Simulated scan of single mutants.
Amino acid sequence: MASLRSPPISCSIGTSTSTLFSSRLRSSTSIPSRRLRRRPIVASHVCVPAIDKSMLVVSETLSEDELWAAACLRVRTFNEFNASAYNIQDHRRYLAEREFEALKERVSGKREGFRRVSCINATLPLSQISIASDDLCSTCKFSDGNEDRVVVGSLDLNQCRWLPDEITGTKPEGFAADIGRAYLSNVCVAKELHRNGVGYELVNKSKKVAADWGITDMYVHVAVNNEGAKRLYMKSGFVQENDEPAWQARYLDRPRRLLLWLGLPPS
């Protein structure tokens, strides 16, 4: 969260893992396959409860307690754990600590190559989702000073020219790309609450924040076989700009992905 390489940026929704989180995690830690597996990039078919959307808050995150809850959600979403494995809870906490430290570094503006990064979370009161999952409530809970809430969705908005190990966008061109281009990454929604519109609300909020920053062109990477994520982004207005060469996907040991683009109106 020794010189630990900061946990990488990944772009995914639901149970899909989008590049950097998994690939760099494998390179920085030796994890037996029986303890940790990457989640398959497939749409979730779990029966989930409906939520009261009026209670959902989607906002930029500043408190460390909420950043920690977001880091825990990302570890929980982007990895598949064997619950019977030895010391699995310690291992989960270790991964969360790495992501938490990297997230703080990005949000504070200390990550080289990024002009600005915002962690945007979707949260619900603990009382609204306690029946959905005891693990979600205990793992991703925080206090906002008034009540206990749970981070049920999260993403990063990155104002930068490119993301490491990803296809690079082409708009805008030249020096304008430094301030006018942004990427979404680490997009995830708790599996218990899929198909409740949480992902759509996260992306919609990121568009508003990006417009306030003066962003003109937003990008997101998505695995070619992640139909749920593609539907979400296209519903949000993204269109395909490019796709990853097969050799690059093989080299990075991940499913091939698409680069989607969205133009924002001038603020």
Rank of each mutant, 00 (worst) to 15 (best):
Phe100Lys: 10
Gly145Trp: 02
Val107Cys: 14
Cys119Met: 13
Thr61Gln: 08
Val187Phe: 04
Thr19Ile: 09
Glu192Arg: 02
Pro164Trp: 07
Asn146Ala: 06
Ala132Tyr: 06
His194Glu: 10
Ala190Phe: 03
Cys119Gly: 02
Arg116Trp: 11
Val187Lys: 04
Phe100His: 14
Pro265Asp: 11
Leu25Lys: 01
Ala96Met: 02
Tyr86Arg: 15
Ala102Leu: 08
Ala249Ser: 15
Ser28Glu: 13
Ser130Ala: 13
Gly153Pro: 02
Pro125Tyr: 04
Asp253Tyr: 09
Arg98Cys: 08
Arg231Phe: 05
Leu36Tyr: 06
Asp243Trp: 11
Pro266Gly: 07
Gln248Ile: 15
His194Tyr: 06
Leu259Ser: 04
Ala83Asp: 15
Ser10Cys: 10
Ile13Val: 12
Glu60Leu: 09
Cys11Leu: 12
Arg116Pro: 09
Gln240Thr: 03
Arg256Ala: 04
Asn186Gln: 14
Phe142Lys: 01
Gly263Arg: 13
Leu264Gln: 01
His221Gln: 07
Ala83Met: 11
Ser33Lys: 07
Leu252Asn: 15
Gln89Arg: 08
Ser54Trp: 06
Leu20Cys: 09
Ser206Phe: 07
Val220Ser: 03
Ala132Pro: 05
Ile167Glu: 07
Thr168Gln: 15
Leu157Phe: 06
Arg231Gln: 10
Arg24Val: 09
Gly153Trp: 04
Leu232His: 08
Ser138Pro: 00
Asp243Arg: 14
Lys208Ala: 10
Pro32Gln: 08
Asn225Trp: 02
Arg35Val: 12
Leu73Thr: 02
Glu99Tyr: 10
Leu260Phe: 13
Val117Tyr: 07
Pro8Leu: 15
Ala211Trp: 00
Glu227Thr: 09
Leu258Tyr: 15
Leu258Asp: 12
Ala210Leu: 04
Val203Ser: 03
Arg74Lys: 08
Leu184Lys: 06
Val239Ser: 14
Leu260Thr: 02
Ala176Leu: 12
Leu73Pro: 06
Gly263Glu: 15
Arg92Asp: 01
Gly199His: 07
Phe142Trp: 11
Arg195Trp: 01
Pro8His: 14
Arg35Asp: 10
Thr15Met: 11
Glu66Trp: 03
Ser10Glu: 14
Asn186Glu: 15
Lys141Met: 13
Leu155His: 09
Ala71Glu: 09
Asp65Pro: 03
Arg39Leu: 01
Arg254Gly: 00
Lys104Leu: 12
Arg35Ser: 09
Lys207Cys: 08
Val46His: 14
Thr15His: 09
Gly180Arg: 03
Met55Ala: 15
Arg76Val: 03
Ser27Ala: 13
Val222Gln: 03
Asn226Cys: 00
Val107Tyr: 05
Pro266Tyr: 08
Pro255Trp: 00
Phe100Ser: 05
Ala190Ile: 04
Ala182His: 05
Asp217Phe: 03
Arg93Ala: 13
Val75Phe: 04
